[in-house]
Design a protein around this nucleic acid. Structure first.
Lengths: 200, 200, 200, 200
DNA sequence: GATGAATGAGGGTTCATTCAT
DNA sequence: GATGAATGAACCCTCATTCAT
């Protein structure tokens, strides 16, 4: 059985704490979640927490980074495989993933809100958000290109609306989550209908 | 100088506390805002707070009610004055109001999030949200009627998307808020373009 | 219908507050009972309370006085009607009264305890307790005289034991109060058996 | 100098808090004593208190347990060494111990009262009290056996009276405590005089 | 690196008391 | 005399963080 090296073990602890923090922040919000909750839920002591993260804010920012990073990677992956056949299918899969995990959605909203509140968080957040936004703009541009459609508005606005609906749906989704994602699909449908076929 | 009567004074205190609470919750979130903050910011002691509201949760719910109520009244007012000439203008005014007050928007988002977390809040919240949603659905139906257009999707979905964009934009709006509301207008434009003209 | 004079009305309010305080102190103890509880339970406002009593401590002391006074009067009444025929019957009635009211008993214990804690209460209490003790000693002396028995110990000790059992039973009486008073009767029986018939 | 291990240190803190709580509750009663008082008097912070006891009620109950336990052990010890020569001497020593510590006595009374008021305390209390009572009944039975006397009343009643006098004396004992314990001895004397010598 | 006892600031809430009405 | 809004000190408890083990 492969023994974990010290480094591997440290990484593993870190990841378990991050996962636990994601759950805790989603459930109770940044202020409402306690370091103790997070540590215990991950199966560690408070001490272990502070050996891995300098503060509660630090783990929050780390989480923010992990999440935004993975969102960026997801979009980038979609760009790579854009082709007329599987595009809508890929999109649908992505949207389902985005809205399927209720905790994920609530966490996203909490991240946004909290980043807006704390100056120290805002700094780190802004940069990440910019990168994600840029990536999304690029993706949308590629899609319109491929579909040979002319966007009905500046792509930045479309991307912003996309993000707004995503976050907004997360907030609005009550206990019965069944129609989360409908808003997004309605928006997509209309977007395509509203786009002018490009002259050749 | 008109001296305030006992009752007037009480009402005034209550309102100042509500205003202060709105600021505090917007700034720091539900958990992050302290009763002490709220009371002091309103110029009162903690004791005064508790002789006006039974608990922190109570003032939060009271705030929720006030806000939702005024949103409902706004929509209702719009229904009353719907006519083809001033409709878009009225809508624009409303949207600007909705997004013009940054604190209001953040508060709205916080209200949604918190209501989703606390069972005791959720109870009170759900009812209010239902009433607002119903009102919005009625409004949208009237508008389509007046414009003699057929909606491209169930009106409930349209209303939900409307709300999602509103909340989502509030979250996404960074320090520079200038283009908040663009998403909403984009959505509205596309909505009209996507609607079929009704057969007469 | 006779209107209450201002003075009568004041006395009535005072008495209702005293009765309410007795219930509250018995139920929750001195610290545990709040002025608001007491006032509201009596059907008045806090202001009315403070118009009648200078402080929480003041009403407690007033209560102490009323109770001790009535205990003294009860003993004095028994002395007056001591005669060989009805003596034991009278005693029994008194004891039943003492233990029949659970609240009364708990209040008595609380009074004792609290008087022992607060210096300001102790002053007023000590005097009252002395008067009651003296009265009880006189009563016991008369009874032994009448029964032509010689007490088996200094009468003061007998009186003290009497009081100790009374207070102790109140404390010990659990929810099932049926055998409160047994201790007292056991003590009385033994007391008589242990007394030497006086030589004539 | 022996350094304290982690565990030893924890136990020591706990014990110091318990001792401090005993003083505080005796002095000010359950409601009157504050967690802050208790912690500071023991030389710790409030936080230390709460990492040793879950709540104020918890330390109260823990105290109750310690005290009742030691009372039980004391009675059990007496049963073990009952023999005609040293019995009365042992009893006397015990009674002196019971009444010698004024705080102990007041605490006992407070424990009884408070247990009667709080449902959550009552649960834990009742069990302990039952065990003590049973032990005392057993002890008294053994003593009568040894002395070859027939008790003049059900042993349970005798035990109850015993307890009542003990608690009652604690309450009645003023600042001058010199004659506490007299009641108890008077009761014992009479008890023996009132017992019938058993037929052989 | 991990532990958890301890700190100390603060959070929500209660409450005796005051005082303008 | 009665009212109850307001005060402000405590109270019970939580929690981010530190540090000796």
């Amino acid at each position: 059985m492969a023994r974990l090296s010290r480094e591997e073990s440290r990484v593993r602890t870190r990841e378990m704490l991050l996962a636990s923090a994601a759950r805790a922040f989603a459930r109770a919000g940044y202020s409402g979640a306690s370091v103790d909750d997070i540590a215990e839920d991950a199966g560690f002591s408070k001490g272990a927490f502070y050996s891995n993260f300098a503060s509660k804010e630090a783990i929050f920012l780390a989480l923010l980074e992990v999440r935004k990073q993975s969102e960026i990677m997801a979009v980038r992956a979609m760009i790579a495989e854009v082709d007329s056949d599987k595009l809508m299918e890929t999109l649908t899969t992505w949207l389902d993933a985005l809205h399927g995990d209720r905790d994920f959605a609530l966490l996203a909203a909490e991240l946004e809100l909290q980043a807006r509140r704390s100056e120290s968080l805002a700094a780190g957040y802004e940069a990440l958000q910019k990168r994600f936004s840029d990536e999304l703009v690029a993706f949308i541009a590629v899609v319109f290109e491929r579909l040979e459609l002319t966007p009905p508005a500046p792509i930045k606005d479309i991307a912003d609306t996309f993000i707004a609906i995503s976050n907004g749906s997360a907030l609005a989704a009550g206990h019965q989550n069944q129609h989360a994602g409908r808003s997004m699909r309605l928006f997509l449908d209309m977007l395509i209908k509203a786009s002018a076929t490009r002259a050749r």
